[in-house]
Design a protein around this nucleic acid. Structure first.
Lengths: 226, 226
DNA sequence: CCGTGGCGTCAAGAACCCATCAAGGAATTG
DNA sequence: CAATTCCTTGATGGGTTCTTGACGCCACGG
């Protein structure tokens, strides 16, 4: 049976979650505080964690970060607010999904199932070789070619390319890229992205001033177009 | 069978609603006061609630807020003709739709069906992609298409679209949209909404001057029609 | 019939974001 | 240890987006 860890300070909601999820044949461990959550997670090694962002003792984002430090357990976040920035922070910290209160129990259960299914199939990364009309990148061997001649990318450039290529076609926010490549705390250094995307385009694109694969969406983020 | 909770103080109307909805094969629980409504909702966990705003013991808006604290059950509001501001407050508190008295039973039943259908298909964790007859929106990848060609939306336009699409088909008050997109304190800047909805319609609708998906409800708010 | 209020449209300046260049300092390599 | 590459940072100019005010239209009510 799969174990769930619930972190929710409000007793009524904690009870409702416990009852409903036990009825769905999950094994449930429920705690009320962030510190208790970190302890419990180490003890029971849950298959999935449901975390309320509004905890009394510590910020929910810290709890997520604390878990992510050593565990890759799927995390679903509950939040009372519709706050977009809080959502982004939670997802950047490593949450897998996000449910806004109030929510229907059916929806939450569906998301729990989906998260567990995803974790089960353990999505293996696709081909580590990406080819476009202009260039070829071998992520594993760290080799880049444009046409016939080989191009050298610096470590930071590779790191940035990997972060983008992980979600081909999808838009990735600048803050997300910065946090992934330079580490948390660098979310404001948007200039780094400008400089490095300029370098990548100069090295890889046919027309660096009219990029076809490393696309900027002004004010939102960047996108890799295969 | 789907359960409906009716909150209506006037005995004649309560009876009429009960009979008509039972005739359409709904299971009906009818109460006369707000406090009874909150108790009943916890007990029978209805699939939809119909709430009269003019209750004797407490404001209908409070009833809605009380429900929304823990449940996302669809709520349809009944209200007298000339209490427009009350309607807006009800929507802000979390109501999904409203019907003005006097109303035809057919109209109410149609709205009940629509609300239940929405709650049923309640966006599952999969791809948050919305498709209409005129355009396609991929919220996660931040991609918009009208027909074959790609359309670019600005950050604020995306934000506004997301705020509306979170409740497809339901009516959202202007103040709610403003608070969500521009932040608290901008609730009065209704002009922003006019400007941005005009831009969205120009970019996405087939006939921007006769919108079929981004609908204005004068004096109340906006609605996204899938 | 006219005033009022809400809505859609338009336009212009302000504010913001991005690409590019350049240079000093840090790190790496031979 | 020296040379080279790499990373960081600031400045500039061009383009886009946001904000704000004004105008006309329509529905409603006096």
């Amino acid at each position: 049976m799969q174990r769930l860890l619930i972190v929710e300070d409000e007793p009524a909601l904690r009870r409702a979650l416990t009852i409903n999820l036990k009825a769905r044949h999950y094994e449930v461990e429920a705690v009320a505080t962030g510190s208790a959550a970190l302890k419990a997670a180490a003890g029971v090694t849950p298959d999935l964690a449901i975390i309320d962002l509004g905890l009394p003792d510590m910020d929910g984002v810290e709890v997520i970060a604390g878990l992510r430090g050593w565990s890759s357990v799927p995390i679903i976040v509950l939040s009372a607010r519709d706050s977009q920035s809080q959502k982004v922070r939670a997802l950047d910290a490593g949450a897998d999904d996000y449910v806004t209160k109030p929510f229907g129990m059916d929806e939450l259960v569906a998301r729990v199932r989906a998260a567990l299914r995803r974790a089960d199939t353990h999505e293996l990364p696709g081909e580590p070789v990406v080819t476009t009309s202009a260039f070829t990148l071998d992520l594993a061997a760290k080799r880049a070619r444009r046409g016939d001649l080989e191009v050298r990318l610096t470590p930071t450039e590779w790191h940035l390319v990997e972060a983008l290529l992980r979600r081909p076609g999808t838009l990735v926010s600048g803050a997300q890229l910065l946090a992934e490549v330079w580490g948390p705390g660098y979310e404001k250094e948007i200039n780094y992205l400008r400089v490095y995307f300029a370098q990548l385009r100069r090295k890889l694109e046919d027309e660096p001033s009219h990029p076809r694969h490393f696309i900027t969406e002004p004010g939102i983020g960047y996108r890799f177009e295969p």
